[in-house]
């Protein structure tokens, strides 16, 4: 933890410190409470959800989970889960590979005109995604990729964010390291592979987590590019589920728990990486 910028280190015995701490704890609880509520309520029978009588269930039940996991014909939740895992993993792999290669070339190699190329890439960071929706849909249609996982995987490799992030990181690698590797007979690719990548592990991890969570949570993409229910990812699957099982809140919440747990666990494991990465790059949207 970095040193606090307060002039006097926060002193837990000061009254002001304690008041602030209490206020912040209450705020933290307010933010976390809704997520705990999903977890708790998913164990309630529908009758208790519809007629609210306290936060905790009177009769805790696994019924919602049994129902949702036990009818793969009507609710292909395993399918959606598998699709989500497949798509998010491949997107992450693709982004890490092409972005790190490009960022390395643009940051560390003497490429003619690279300033222009990099400038053009960075400029597209300002383009709102919706502008691409219709033309990308038509291009995917031409390629015959609509309603396949390719529609969600390949275009995701075009985003400029990762190239920008890794480029800035690669710039900080000391020249001497590369020169030493070159004297040892390393090729350009060897230097990228054995010097630049290992040094940049934290930046790669940050980009990897962002990309995975972003892809896992993506809603607009699968909504527009997929048609068949068995091709869906979890977020759109659950949204559809909510429309068809509108009255059954218990089932919907249980499905939400299953969709949320993987990212929640990933977040709790890597929260430092994620939050520092966000603070570093200052972007979420």
């Amino acid at each position: 933890m970095s040193a606090s910028p307060l002039p006097t280190k926060p002193n837990s015995r000061h009254l002001a410190y304690r008041i602030n701490a209490v206020v912040m704890i209450v705020a933290g609880l307010l933010f976390a409470a809704p997520i705990l509520l999903i977890l708790i309520t998913a164990f309630k029978p529908d009758s208790e959800i519809v007629k609210f009588a306290g936060i905790l269930p009177h009769k805790a039940t696994l019924h919602n989970f049994q129902e949702i996991l036990g009818s793969p014909e009507e609710i292909p939740i395993f399918r959606w889960f598998g699709n989500s895992v497949l798509i998010s993993s491949l997107v992450t792999l693709l982004v890490l590979t092409v972005d790190s290669l490009a960022a390395y070339g643009l940051a560390r190699l003497n490429l003619p005109g690279k300033k222009w190329v990099f400038g053009l890439i960075v400029a597209t960071l300002m383009v709102p995604g919706q502008i691409l929706l219709v033309p990308v849909y038509l291009i995917l249609n031409k390629l015959g990729w609509l309603d396949t996982p390719l529609a969600l995987i390949v275009p995701a490799g075009a985003g400029a964010f990762g190239v920008f992030l890794l480029h800035q990181f690669f710039l900080t690698i000391p020249r001497e390291l590369e020169e030493a590797a070159a004297l040892d007979g390393c090729s350009k690719f060897g230097i990228y592979r054995h010097v630049a990548l290992p040094i940049s592990a934290p930046a790669l991890a940050t980009l990897g987590i962002f990309t995975f969570v972003g892809s896992w949570n993506d809603f607009m993409g699968p909504l527009v590019f997929l048609d068949s229910v068995d091709k869906y990812t979890l977020p759109v699957g659950i949204a559809l589920f909510q429309t068809s099982y509108y009255a059954e809140y218990g089932l919907t919440l249980a499905a939400s728990v299953l969709c949320t747990l993987p990212v929640l666990i990933a977040f709790l494991l890597f929260q430092r990486h994620i939050i520092q990465g966000i603070a570093l790059t200052g972007s979420k949207e």
Binding site: L6, A21, I35, N217, P235, Q242, I275
Partner: peptide, 25 residues
């Protein structure tokens, strides 16, 4: 920012955690 190390880290995570939910959930 006025809180000490560990408390700050935990509460920062609590404020941040809703952003990892997908919009349908």
């Amino acid at each position: 920012n006025g809180l000490k190390g560990r408390l700050q880290t935990v509460l920062r995570a609590a404020v941040f955690v809703p952003t990892v939910l997908t919009i349908s959930v």
